[in-house]
Design a protein around this nucleic acid. Structure first.
Lengths: 202, 202
DNA sequence: TTGCTATACGGAGGCTACCTCCGTATCGTA
DNA sequence: TACGATACGGAGGTAGCCTCCGTATAGCAA
């Protein structure tokens, strides 16, 4: 997903229509994201930019041309997973009954979050330094959550006094906690679902 | 709270009885913690060790003698707040009815967490690099939570299938999330409390 | 195919922050 | 007062982030 429409567009309203990347630039972009995914998974915040560039078989200069700051690279890797969650929301909303869809998507979220545990410190720091770069992904997840949550609310099976931002705050926060096992998080998700559900409990 | 009993004792079972700090060392220890609290509040993870040392009117060498790694300093500041939470748990458990005590303590926790937002990235990174150093504080909070939670469970007003670790995972995680306002967190706390409570809802 | 230019590459090196080391200073006791 | 144990300070080693600019190449036009 190279930024032909400038993934990190300037905050001004200016939308410069960028010409497509040259073939070698395109190839290196993809190599870099792939290498970053690997190295970040293996070494978390210990991963250095030099190491990622080397793994991609590319100079650091090239790395920094595509990803001016460390966060931009981390974010690119992060986005891949976000896309999968958005897709999941669409599919469960189309196929499953409202409550089941909500449960299924949240379970998918918890599992996704678990798989990204090594990134958490990385993301946390990066988002602090560059809050605006996190907004897009955050919003996409929120919208995906809204898709399943609002459908459940309209069906009358989820309480109305929370919105998708609340839901992701709660479940997302829970998953970000340090020593969460997948098992514990799934148990806590059950608790949260009990808190959300409007029909008889247990 | 200078470490006369070695706050970062080696993982081996060896407990060396250390003699008390010399007067100047004691004074500098306190200056450093105080300076760190100030500088970390002001500049978060941007705060450099040099800056903290300068603010304490002490050389970096002295800083590193007392706090061999960055985390040790952050942790010392963090502990201060943890102590307050432990104290709060004891007092509400003694004075308030079981359910009210739980609500009050959790509300205290949420407010405390809010006040420490600038530290979060710092703590997150530090705990990742040195997991063992976080355990003590985490455990103290968990025990404090247990004090009020178990009392509520024994009184039959809180569900039995969660423990204090679960509770702190959920509420702690929620508070750690990035763009939580105090208001949103207090609203989410209400939701969590609804999930925990065993009596009739709403 | 050849030539030309915008685009992209690479990696040496600047910069900054963390942390160490050791010569000097001070405390506390006899 | 003397002296050893303890503590201080800050220059400098090290490492990782990022920049800069000379070189290389893709893509196009003739």
């Amino acid at each position: 997903m190279p930024p032909s429409t400038a993934s990190s567009a300037p905050p001004t309203g200016i939308t410069t229509t960028r010409r497509p990347l040259r073939a070698d630039a395109q190839r290196n972009y993809e190599r870099l994201v792939s290498a970053a995914r690997t190295v970040l998974s293996e070494r978390g915040s210990e991963a250095s930019m030099e190491e990622i560039a080397k793994r991609a078989d590319v100079g650091v200069g090239t790395l920094y041309r595509h990803f001016p700051r460390r966060i931009d690279l981390v974010e690119a890797v992060y986005r891949e997973g976000v896309e999968a969650l958005v897709t999941l929301a669409t599919s469960v909303a189309a196929d499953a009954p409202p409550w089941d869809a909500l449960v299924e998507w949240l379970d998918g979220f918890v599992r996704y979050a678990q798989s990204k545990r090594v990134f958490l410190t990385e993301l946390h720091e990066a988002f602090e330094k560059n809050p605006e770069l996190a907004l897009d992904s955050r919003e996409r997840i929120r919208v995906a959550a809204g898709l399943v949550l609002e459908r459940a609310q309209q069906a009358g099976v989820a309480r109305d006094d929370i919105d998708s931002a609340d839901l992701m705050q709660l479940v997302g926060g829970m998953c970000m906690a340090r020593n969460a096992s997948l098992e514990q998080n799934e148990r806590l998700l059950t608790l949260v679902l009990d808190g959300i559900r409007t029909t008889a409990r247990h």
